[in-house]
């Protein structure tokens, strides 16, 4: 950037400015992300349920709210696919809580619970409507870009503060921004192809 001090390619004034802008935006992006993933009764990916590693090994999936289950059923009925789902086999209640043998016959959960949606079904609720899918993908791409720029610019502030060797500092900067670019490409790919 040109300034009264002459042209200096190393000026990071724009980066500094962008750091504050992305930081402010990230507060709102994070609140939305947090709300959708944890508080929204229908679309939350993280439910009020705990699944231990051992349970996960036996194929137990987290339980979702009745609202989420109803929304998934309605969505699948609309699409005319996977209609009335066969009850998911869940290990007996005893084995879920560490008593009795793990081979006990299931399912012993109430039928409604066995038919509960899978995490992937809940995710697809948000991507089922084409308009919302585009909006959510745009939101997530912006979120991804801002989070990576903010995080890696901040990381570079720390690296340049503590790495005193010039070569090592340049190396660390190049390596960290390369990692950021790889993560952006991986993340953008995940966001774009999700649900397609």
């Amino acid at each position: 950037m040109a300034s009264k001090y002459g042209r200096t390619a190393r000026s990071s004034a724009f980066q500094w400015f962008a750091h504050r802008i992305t930081g402010t935006f990230l507060i709102f992006l994070l609140i939305t992300h947090f709300w959708v993933q944890h508080f929204d009764r229908v679309t939350a990916s993280i439910s009020h349920d705990v699944v231990t590693h051992d349970q996960a090994e036996t194929g137990v999936l987290p339980r979702y709210s009745d609202e989420a289950a109803a929304a998934v059923r309605a969505s699948q009925a609309r699409d005319g696919q996977r209609a009335p789902e066969t009850p998911r086999v869940v290990p007996a209640q005893d084995s879920r809580f560490g008593q009795g043998d793990a081979d006990a016959p299931g399912p012993t959960h109430p039928p409604a619970e066995n038919a509960g949606p899978e995490p992937y079904d809940v995710l697809m609720l948000r991507l089922a409507d084409p308009v919302y899918a585009v909006l959510w993908k745009g939101f997530n791409l912006l979120f991804l870009l801002f989070a990576l720029h903010h995080g890696f610019y901040g990381l570079n502030n720390i690296l340049t503060d503590y790495i005193r060797n010039d070569m090592a500092r340049v190396g660390a900067t190049a390596l960290s921004w390369t990692l950021a670019l790889v993560l952006f490409l991986v993340g953008a790919y995940s966001v774009i192809v999700a649900g397609l």
Binding site: S45, D49, V51, H53, P62, P119, Y120
Partner: peptide, 12 residues
């Protein structure tokens, strides 16, 4: 894979 990931997010 996604089901497994989200299930692991429910670990204590």
């Amino acid at each position: 894979a996604y089901n497994a990931l989200i299930t692991s997010y429910h670990a204590p």
